[in-house]
Design a protein around this nucleic acid. Structure first.
Lengths: 347, 347
DNA sequence: CATGCGACCGTAAACGTTTCCGGTACTCGC
DNA sequence: GCGAGTACCGGAAACGTTTACGGTCGCATG
């Protein structure tokens, strides 16, 4: 089903048909209606390659998924809900979301270069941003619209939405402090991930605000997956003056931490208080229930879609400084009795 | 960077350049080398729309992700590992994987129709197949290559790879039986999902093989997510003659089941034996450790990529009858002492 | 030497769409 | 009645690539 076939069937020129279907000027309202109906009954769908070739627009937004980092920082259930929000947000703009994986051993830059010159998408969503992320400068240089899920240190400002790690850390430390904890262990993401420094800085600031002395030995830096949560918890618990509370800034790290604690004969929530990052399925099965933070992932996806639509409209020249926001996360109190005492703070 | 620009820079015609880059006949080996080098140094990447428009090939395989069903059938960190395998498998064929989401409220058929007529991908991967899945006949009618992750009841044969639920159920029941269990509860997926009937049939057959009487009251049919695992376990445990063992054919169902059991004062692995479907992070945090099954997701992804490449080469006329295989899952014995007795069987 | 053949390369036609540019017919204001 | 303006439509070029086709040249074969 061609546009040419459709046009000749209607006795019109292909130009008029195209204008009618694309809501452009210079076409009679009645003819437009006729065209739209015929297209619908004949089942005409414009060929995307032809469109893109001519107009330069693909009508899609690419989501760059880098498995190693993404699955370390976020979990898979994180993205499923997020994507749902992004897709519904984009649908309103007539756009579609396409999720792409880097090839094995392919670094982020060559991945982007390949897909950008190929013309896979009109705009991009980046996740798992690094502290120094060359992808951002690359896209900026080429004036390609994009929004990052996560911050990064760059010369020029760019559009991003990131989880409000500042608030998470501050709330968690305040909870611990209110429950009387003075030695609080921290498991932070590896230094290459953008939020690592933020987490550590806020950790120090929150300790200071609570009048607790800072001890660098209580910080564990590295991956934040399940296995690392286990080894990190073990290491911190083997310290001579071990912590009485643990803050784990990884999705699945608490699962490993619970295991490590029990292996050492310590019962989570009883002998030691634990707070995790996010309320995901992996943590939901933990007993006693983990204290952690929740967020509306679908709403976050919608916000990302809105931001990307805005940068797309601005076409590179957009003012992105207002497109930088921290996404709130709400605390959810679990069954750890040490933390429980502080519930009032959030009542 | 055009192919035209590249050609004129080399003093060749665009035809020759195209042939050189696409490994076609009628081009001198030396010139070909020269072209490839120039393309690399000048950073030329062919425009995909132009290619597709002319050749009709996109060089991509589409993965249709239907969130509601997928997240019910498979557990959460299922796809990430799978996709990694698919992408590496496709890379060998010069193909790329694109993952697409259905729009909100859009059913599978309109989704496919939209993307097929649009020409989004050369071949498709379907997941979460239903017992009666109209997507399959749709693709068959149009001779579009595809492979399904999951079986379905269709008139014509089609290419699929599915988890070996037969073996899972048989192994689980054998484990229970060897440990002396006579009343074994089953939590099966909803009837619309393709594996529901398979699971139930195998359950009956395995009981028969073990000389255990079948009791329909011990089967619970419905969703298999965490909440349903909870309610199903509670229901089964409230029976007058309640089961001593539970087989849960859902990814996250065991998490809810553990919760329900404890709420009834029953300790998993002590008062009741539990076996789950897959070794996912959500189940990995359970104490005592859950007995369940594992599989190599990346290898499964590779197999899917291979199958889709084969159907793509056959171009619809391919013999798909040999492209139907059940993917093996290996049992992993957890800390449930009732089941523990049967370890020898797998040593 | 004529012929045929293979290797190599250039030419040009498609693929399906958007969009600029003209052209017609009609309306409106004077 | 005439010019200007407007509404609507058709023609055709362009987007970047692949690929069928023809043409030239060199070489071997008879």
């Amino acid at each position: 089903m061609d546009i040419r076939a459709l046009a000749s069937h209607l006795g019109l020129s292909i130009g008029t048909v195209s204008r009618a279907l694309n809501d452009r000027k210079d076409v009679n309202a009645q003819t437009r209606q006729r065209v739209i109906e015929a297209a619908s009954t004949l089942g005409y769908t414009p060929n995307q390659s032809g469109r893109t070739l001519r107009s330069g627009r693909t009508g899609t937004v690419g989501f760059m998924l880098t498995l190693e980092h993404d699955s370390a920082v976020y979990g898979e259930p994180f993205f499923m809900a997020l994507w749902e929000g992004v897709q519904t947000g984009l649908t309103e703009q007539g756009l579609d979301l396409v999720i792409l994986l880097a090839r094995k051993g392919e670094d982020g830059l060559t991945f982007l270069r390949r897909h950008v010159s190929r013309g896979t998408a009109d705009a991009w969503l980046l996740s798992a941003t690094q502290v120094h992320d060359e992808r951002i400068a690359f896209l900026q240089d080429r004036n390609i619209p994009f929004v990052a899920l996560g911050r990064s240190e760059t010369e020029r400002p760019f559009a991003w939405i990131d989880l409000d790690f500042e608030a998470v850390v501050a709330d968690a430390i305040a909870l611990f402090a209110a429950a009387g904890h003075r030695r609080i262990g921290l498991v932070a993401p590896p230094a290459t991930i953008n939020n690592s420094q933020i987490v550590i800085d806020c950790y120090k600031a929150a300790l200071d605000a609570a009048g607790i002395a800072y001890d660098s030995a209580l910080i564990h830096n590295g991956e934040t997956d399940e296995n690392d949560g286990e080894s990190a918890a073990r290491e911190l618990m083997m310290l001579p003056d071990r912590p009485s509370a643990l803050l784990l800034m990884g999705e699945t790290a608490p699962v490993g931490a619970y295991r490590a604690l029990r292996a050492l004969g310590l019962e989570p929530g009883q002998d030691i208080a634990v707070i995790g990052l996010r309320d995901n399925p992996a943590c939901r099965g933990l007993v006693p229930q983990l204290t952690c933070f929740t967020l509306d992932l679908e709403a976050l996806g919608l916000a990302l879609a809105g931001a990307v639509a805005e940068t797309l409209a601005g076409h590179g020249t957009a003012q992105v400084s207002h497109l930088q926001r921290r996404w709130p996360m709400a605390p959810r109190i679990g069954g750890s009795h040490d933390v429980q005492k502080a519930v009032a703070r959030f009542a």
